[in-house]
């Protein structure tokens, strides 16, 4: 996996941090963190695995970046306000919009990339909140809060009433 992705991972981290030494540390941390989740039967060439390690590298890089500088995260509320409100929301409308997943995922990533990332880790990789917190070096409450906001943002994108009761 290292030989397949080391260059792109280093490049992604360096593009965020602009520091090869820190980028190197981030890539090392990412491999150490992801090792327990890579098992014998997993195909390292599959997109799911590639996506997992990329998400981890990006998040770790942003953690370092925000620690290094006072990084002002974009106001979620402001971004969410850009989205249109739509009162029509039901499972049927969700099913009907399955063909638009890529666009919806893109919109969600535009609202805040970590929303899309955390959805991926939780529902595609089926990781627990504890596992996600360990991989991304954030607290569990932070994971829960980001998941909640991601779902809210997704609902706004899809439009309509808050359907899922949490």
């Amino acid at each position: 996996m290292y030989h397949l992705y080391s260059k792109e991972l280093f490049a992604i981290s360096n593009s965020i941090l602009n520091d090869p030494h820190e980028a190197e540390d981030v890539v090392q941390s990412a491999f150490i963190k992801v090792t327990p989740y890579i098992h014998k039967n997993l195909d390292v060439k599959c997109n799911k695995t590639r996506g997992l390690i990329v998400i981890i590298v990006k998040n770790l890089s942003f953690n370092v970046y925000s620690r290094r500088k006072l990084y002002n995260m974009a106001n979620i509320q402001e971004l969410e306000n850009v989205l249109e409100d739509n009162d029509d929301f039901s499972p049927e409308s969700v099913v009907l919009r399955l063909d638009q997943n890529k666009e919806i995922a893109q919109k969600l990533a535009l609202v805040k990339e970590e929303y899309a990332e955390i959805m991926t880790l939780k529902y595609v990789h089926e990781l627990t909140n504890t596992e996600i917190s360990e991989l991304l070096s954030i607290t569990e409450s932070s994971v829960r809060s980001k998941l909640h906001r991601a779902k809210k943002a997704l609902q706004k994108i899809l439009g309509g009433v808050d359907y899922e009761r949490e």
């Binding site: 997109n47 996506g51 890529k102 995922a105 899309a116 959805m119 939780k122 529902y123 595609v124």
Partner: peptide, 11 residues
């Protein structure tokens, strides 16, 4: 949500 996650990975 899983479908959205998979779409994100594709992107």
């Amino acid at each position: 949500y899983k479908a959205i996650g998979e779409a994100y990975i594709e992107n």
